[in-house]
Design a protein around this nucleic acid. Structure first.
Lengths: 190, 190, 190, 190
DNA sequence: GATGAATGAGTGTTCATTCAT
DNA sequence: CATGAATGAACACTCATTCAT
C-alpha cells in the first residue's frame, strides 16, 4: 500500500487557490486544478469527496489560519486600545502577506458554495474578538454600534486590501499601515 | 431597438442579475438566463455579442447608475462636509435600495470578466468625487491619505451592506445610517 | 428556426437498438450511440431528457409495436383456438422478423432501468389477450393455470427465439413455426 | 489458496452476484464489489485476471452447479418419462431455491461477456440430457422437434421463474410446480 | 497475500455559440 | 427580429486497472 502523499494534497490546495485567483471561481475546473497541481483529476477525488468539498475545505482552512493570525499575542488583560491595535495590525499584516488567501476567500464567500459552510461554527474562532469589542463599548471607549457596522468600517477594509482590483498597485509600507489603523481607530473611538 | 425590443433587453438584464444573485456566477448559463427572461438563447445574441458582453454591459450599466446616484444634488459650492455627507448618504441609500445590483457587481468584480472592463473609462464618472476629496485634503478638513485607503474605509463598507452574507439580517433604518455615516466621517476627518 | 429532424430521432433509436444488441446494454454509452447515429452527443439531449429517457422510450415503443402485432386481426367472436392460434402466430412472426427489437427488450427488462417503466400502464395493451385466456379457461378449453405459468410456457418461449445466444443458427421456416405452435397449444389445452 | 483465501474468494463471488442483481450489470463496478466483499479492489485482481474473468468465472460456476442439480439422481435405466420428470423437477427446485443465481445468469447471457464463454465446453455438462431426449424421440415418446425448440418450451420457462420482473409475486408451492410440469410434459409428449 | 493510493480513459450531461428558418 | 435545433468542447465525476509498500 502506498501512503497518502502530503505533497500532493498541498499541491492541490496551492493549485486551487492560485487558479481561483488567476482565472476566477467559475473557470477553475477540476481538470485545470489537477493539471496545475501536476496530478490526475481522479487523484483529487482521493483527497476530497467532490469539487464542493475541495473548495469548502480550502476556505475553512484559510479562515482558521486567519483567526489564529488575528488572535496572535492576544492578551485580554491589556487596555482595550492596545488589544485592539494588536489585533488589527496582526490582521492587516497577515492579510497583506497572504493576499492570495483572501482573494480566494472573497471569491468563495460570493459564490453559492458559501451557503454550504457552517458559519456559526467558523465564527466561534472569532469569538474572543467579539468579547473584547463588547467590553470596549461597556467601558465607553468605542462607539455603541452593532458589530456588523463596526466590522464593516474596521475589519472589512482590511479584506479590501487583498483585492488587487481595488488597490492593485498600492504599496503596503509601515506608514500606510499606521495611517490605515488611524482611520479604523478614529472611526470607532468615542 | 424600440418598444418591444427594449422590453426584451430589459428582461434579459433583469434575468441576468436575478440569476447571478440566486445561483451564482458560474451556474448562470446563457440558456438559463434566456429561460428566465422568456426568450430564446439565440435572442440574447441579437442584443449582445456574447456572454462576456452581456455580463460586462450589465456591470457597466449598474456602475453608471451608481455614479449618478452618488452625484445626485451634487453642489460643489457647498462646504466640504455637506458635499461629503450628501454624497455618502446618496450612495448608502442607493445601495440599500438596490442590493441586488451590488451583489451582482461584487460577484462580477471577483470574476475574470472584470479585467475586460475599461476601468479608467468607468472611473471618469466618479471623477467629481475625487476632485472634492482632493480639495478636502488641501483645506485640511480630512486626513491626507491616498484615495485607495480613504475609499476602503469610507465607501467600501457601503458595498458590504449589500452583501447578505455579511449583514443578512441587518436592518437599515435611519438611525443605523446616521451611525454608519458618523463612523465614515470620524475615520477621515482631521 | 430549424424544425426537429425526424430522420435524426429515428437514427438515434436505430443506433440505440443496434448498439445495445451488438455490445450490450452497459457498454452502449451515449457517446457511442451518438457516433453510430452520426449525431452529436448533445443532440440526443434535445430529443430525450437523459439516457434513461432514451432507453425507456425505446423500450415502450417496442412494447407497443409488439402488442399491436399480437392483436392484429383480433376477432373475439371466433372460437378460442382460432383466436389463440392467430394471436400466437402473429406474435411469433413479428418477433422473428424483428429479432433486434426483442433482444433489446430482453436486455432492457434485465436492467435496472426496467423498474422505471409503468408496467401496469404497458400491460393494458395486452389486456385483450388476458380476457381471451380467461374465457378459454371458463369454457374448459385450456387448463386452469395462473396467467404467469401459462405465459411462461406459451409466450415466453417466443421471446427466446429472438435471442441468438439461445438459438442463433436456428432457421424459422414454416414447418418449425407449426411445430412450435403445436407445443404451445398442447401445453395449455385440456 | 486455502482457508482464509477461500473465504475471501467466496465473499467476492457472493458480492458479485448480490450487486449485479441489486443494481444491475453496468453499475456493478469492481470498486463496489470490493467494498461489498470487504476487500480491497486490488485483492480481486489476485484471484481474477480482470473484471471479465471475475464475471465469466462466476457465470461458469453457476452453470456447473445448475447442470449438477439437473442431473441429480440421474438414472438412465428408468423409463423416459420418469427420467424426464426427475430432471425437470430437480431443475425447477434448484432454480426456485437459487433465484439470485439465475438472475445473474440471465443478465450475464445478455451481456457481451457471454461471447467469451466456451459454450460447447459448458454444454458438455448437459450432454446426458441431450442423450435422453434423443432416445425419447427415437422411442416415439416425445415429439420429434429440434432440441432448441424443445428447450424453449420445456426448460426456458424454468428460468423465467427466477426473474422477479416476470413473476415477482408468484408463489412456488407444490401444486404450482405440478401444474407447470404438466404443461411442460404435455408440450412435448406425443 | 493484501492493500489503498494513483491514474488515463471514459461516463452522462451541460456549455456557449451558430445556423436555417 | 426572433427562434429552437444543432453541435464540439468542456464539465464533474467514476471506471478498470496498476503499483509501491
Amino acid at each position: 500500500m502506498r501512503s497518502k502523499d502530503e505533497h500532493k494534497q498541498e499541491a492541490i490546495i496551492r493549485a486551487t487557490i492560485k487558479l481561483v485567483n488567476e482565472i476566477g471561481f467559475d473557470y477553475s475546473s477540476v481538470a485545470k486544478i489537477a493539471k496545475e497541481a501536476n496530478v490526475s483529476p481522479a487523484t483529487i477525488y482521493i483527497y476530497y469527496k467532490n469539487k464542493e468539498d475541495l473548495l469548502v475545505s480550502t476556505y475553512i482552512d484559510i479562515k482558521q489560519k486567519m483567526s489564529r493570525a488575528f488572535l496572535k499575542d492576544f492578551d485580554e488583560s491589556k487596555p482595550f486600545r492596545d488589544i485592539f491595535e494588536c489585533m488589527w495590525l496582526n490582521g492587516f499584516e497577515y492579510v497583506a502577506k497572504n493576499r492570495e488567501y483572501f482573494q480566494f476567500a472573497e471569491q468563495f464567500s460570493n459564490s453559492p458554495y458559501s451557503d454550504l459552510v457552517d458559519h456559526t461554527q467558523l465564527d466561534k474562532h472569532f469569538e474572543p474578538i467579539l468579547r473584547v469589542i463588547k467590553k470596549g463599548i461597556e467601558q465607553k471607549v468605542i462607539k455603541n454600534v452593532s458589530f456588523e457596522i463596526l466590522s464593516l468600517f474596521v475589519f472589512y477594509p482590511i479584506l479590501g486590501l487583498s483585492n488587487p482590483k481595488i488597490c492593485g498597485n498600492f504599496e503596503l509600507n509601515r506608514e500606510n499601515i499606521k495611517q490605515a489603523f488611524t482611520l479604523a481607530w478614529d472611526a470607532i473611538k468615542l
